[in-house]
């Protein structure tokens, strides 16, 4: 497992910036009610990139929208910097929303305004003098690498560029928190990478706490330090990304990741086979070559599903089991000596 500390941990010193206590959200629908959030408890530290992942309908969108009160929770508490945002009056709410910015899946830019005017909008509504605001807009566009596009209209930009404008706009009010509501879900993989890199950069350079929701585990794996798995309006699992990905305990997590098959639903094979489980720390180790060399067997790989998490391999490989019981024992011993978990695969 990675020994790297989450970003800014030294500076933020583990103080929770956002605390969610027993949050409930119930929607009234004709003929009953829908429980979107069912008692959420979370605490998000300053300077973290916190990921919330779940299937559609798990309540993740509702949860993130409660954090700036776009949705009003039915019950519970949300403390941001120690202040309960659910008891705020209108004026306090406006001030809070300038400290808690948000970006969206569909970017939500003002289509009739130029890029510069879009980024200037938060400054305009806060009453920042024009000259000062324009200066800040220039800085922000430079930060998101869109200096040349100041006078373009959003329609002339690509999806990734639009999201960059949205990010610049979200940063204009000097926020402490950036909420990302499926911010990369409408983008292609390459663009997603660049937006994630930008978010990470913002987190590192400006020390802004990032809370993002997504249904893509790749996003979480790439930039988050902590993750919560949401399922049916409850937190199924919460912890550091390394921990949650490797030791996935909840059914929801297993469904989402599919990294390691759970014990009860063991892999099935037509021929006698062995399952080798990689749990990190075997980086660059030539297991198969070693097997061939040390045990003198021809290794037939039936399937392999190994993914790097923080540079460590995680996953499993299924190889055909040698017919000779002595050789089999030798193979298992060799692999176990290498620190790998080996199991016989159930025959289907």
């Amino acid at each position: 497992m990675s020994e790297e500390k989450p970003i800014l941990e030294e500076a933020g010193a583990e103080t929770p910036l956002i605390e969610i206590k027993n949050l409930r959200k119930v929607y009234q629908v004709p003929g009953g009610e829908v429980v979107a959030l069912d008692g959420i408890d979370l605490s998000i530290n300053r300077g973290q990139i916190y990921g919330i992942i779940g299937m559609s309908g798990a309540g993740k969108s509702t949860l993130i929208r409660c954090l700036n009160r776009l949705d009003t929770p039915t019950d519970g508490q949300i403390l941001i910097d120690g202040q309960n945002i659910l008891t705020m009056n209108n004026k306090q709410l406006m001030a809070m929303r300038r400290k808690v910015s948000m970006i969206f899946q569909s970017f939500n830019l003002l289509m009739q305004k130029t890029v510069a005017r879009n980024v200037r909008y938060p400054l305009e509504i806060a009453g920042v003098p024009k000259a000062k605001a324009n200066e800040r807009v220039k800085e922000l566009l430079k930060l998101v690498e869109l200096e040349g596009k100041a006078d373009a209209y959003p329609i002339q930009l690509s999806g990734g560029q639009r999201q960059r404008v949205a990010i610049a706009r979200a940063l204009a009010s000097d926020p402490e928190v950036l909420l990302c509501d499926e911010a990369t879900s409408a983008l292609d993989p390459m663009t997603t990478q660049s937006i994630l890199a930008l978010l990470q950069d913002i987190n590192k350079r400006l020390g802004i706490t990032v809370v993002l929701i997504t249904h893509e585990m790749a996003v979480i794996r790439q930039i988050c330090s902590r993750v919560a798995i949401l399922d049916g309006g409850r937190i199924a699992e919460e912890g550091t990304v390394d921990d949650v990905f490797v030791h996935t305990r909840s059914a929801a997590g297993k469904r989402l990741f599919g990294i390691l098959p759970s014990e009860e639903e063991d892999a099935v094979s037509d021929v006698p086979a062995l399952r080798i489980v990689f749990e990190g720390g075997k980086e660059g180790m030539p297991i198969i070559a070693g097997l061939v060399k040390n045990c003198g067997v021809d290794v037939n790989i039936l399937s392999a599903d190994i993914k790097p998490i923080n540079g460590q391999p995680y996953g499993q490989m299924i190889i055909e089991s040698p017919d000779d019981p002595d050789v089999r024992i030798q193979v298992v011993r060799y692999l176990t000596d290498q620190g790998l978990t080996v199991k016989e695969v159930r025959q289907g």
Binding site: F104, L109, M111, Y121, I125, R169, A170
Partner: peptide, 21 residues
């Protein structure tokens, strides 16, 4: 687009600002 109005809300706009801007 409702999303744009939502974004304006999320940025701390007052009702008047949303209408006018």
């Amino acid at each position: 687009d409702g999303g744009v109005i939502e974004a304006a809300k999320a940025m701390g706009s007052t009702t008047w600002q949303i209408i006018w801007k």
